[in-house]
């Protein structure tokens, strides 16, 4: 596999042609991604796109039909136990023993992990799970509290790699903020985070790079900045008097002019556009920031299958540019 020279640190996750079929159903089709050590990697896709299948294959719950995968330099088929020793995993919609108290559940899972829970107290504090909360039985927990417990059980032993499936599901905005802080601190400490999410603003906010998959195939693998830079931005312009002819302005599309107001979409760099429209008559200019949501939706627009990937995104050979 690429990226493993002698003496070099292996990628945190590396898949090569990873394929998983359930009978005639292709859950994952030749997925090749590489997650670097020390980055926060977002894994995006709608329900049924293959996110969970990928995660479950990486952790040894599923066996790949074809292809290979390595986690922290270890083979997922042959060295799964060692991978799980170095990894923290938060399953989507985590289920814990309702009859146990939160503290007992964390202790039990820590003992099974075989490593001291060095970060448990700090995480409980940051996620505001008090001692009295931890004494209560899990069956009495709210959904948000269960999710907090799920996050803590995954990270309490300070794993080298955290694999988190929909980690902020059920967390209130305050706790989401605290969670992002935890992720950023982990990244600063050289830990790697691989997480799947439907919440695109959070991916945009915390991730260094994202992979987008659809129907088991990789649609894009890029830095968030690069992904956003290629998105079209919505712009609105207003002039004193009638709007001038804008057809010559580079990168503009979907232009609509109504009296003194014009709206359009802008692709590419903002600079040439601003220079082109700058005039004393221009009274107002609004450029809405490109959002990951728009980029994401673009991949899932009607009629676009994995075979119709926008060229710049590169389905077969995803483009990768440093942030």
């Amino acid at each position: 596999m690429e990226g493993e020279g002698p003496g070099s640190t292996p990628p945190a996750i590396q898949t090569e042609g990873l394929t998983k079929h359930y009978g005639s159903v292709r859950a994952l089709n030749a997925l090749s991604i590489e997650v670097r050590v020390g980055e926060i990697f977002g894994f995006l896709g709608p329900n049924g796109s293959g996110k969970s299948t990928t995660i479950r294959t990486l952790l040894g719950y599923l066996h790949a039909t074809a292809g290979r995968a390595r986690v922290l330099g270890l083979d997922v088929e042959r060295e799964s136990v060692e991978i799980r020793r170095k990894t923290g995993y938060l399953p989507g919609g985590i289920a814990l023993y309702g009859s146990l108290s939160g503290a007992d559940a964390l202790e039990y899972l820590s003992e099974l992990q075989g490593q001291p829970a060095t970060r448990r107290n700090e995480l409980c504090e940051r996620l505001q799970l008090s001692t009295s909360d931890l004494r209560r039985r899990i069956r009495d927990y709210s959904r948000g509290m269960r999710q907090k417990l799920g996050v803590i059980q995954a990270l309490q032993h300070d794993p080298e790699l955290a694999i988190l499936d929909e980690p902020t599901e059920g967390l209130d905005p305050l706790m989401q903020h605290a969670f992002y802080g935890i992720l950023e601190d982990m990244r600063a400490a050289g830990r790697t985070i691989f997480f799947s999410s439907h919440v695109l603003p959070e991916v945009e906010r915390v991730c260094d790079r994202v992979a987008i998959i659809r129907a088991g195939e990789l649609m894009a693998l890029q830095t968030v900045d690069d992904l956003l830079a290629r998105r079209k931005r919505r712009i609105t312009l207003r002039w004193r008097g009638a709007a001038p002819d804008l057809s010559f302005v580079p990168g503009l599309a979907d232009l609509q002019v109504r009296g003194d107001r014009a709206t359009a979409t802008l692709a590419g760099e903002v600079g040439p556009f601003v220079r082109a429209v700058a005039s004393p008559a221009l009274e107002d200019l609004t450029i809405e920031p490109a959002s990951l949501e728009e980029a994401f939706l673009e991949f899932y627009a009607d009629g676009e299958g994995p075979g119709h990937v926008p060229r710049e995104m590169g389905s077969a050979q995803p483009s990768e540019e440093p942030r």
């Binding site: 952790l59 040894g60 719950y61 136990v81 060692e82 799980r84 020793r85 990894t87 923290g88 995993y89 399953p91 919609g93 985590i94 289920a95 814990l96 023993y97 899972l109 099974l112 992990q113 075989g114 059980q153 995954a154």
Partner: peptide, 13 residues
């Protein structure tokens, strides 16, 4: 119940 998922996330063959 989904609890096997959590247990097998540990280094438990």
């Amino acid at each position: 119940a989904g609890t096997l998922e959590v247990l097998l996330a540990r280094p438990l063959p």
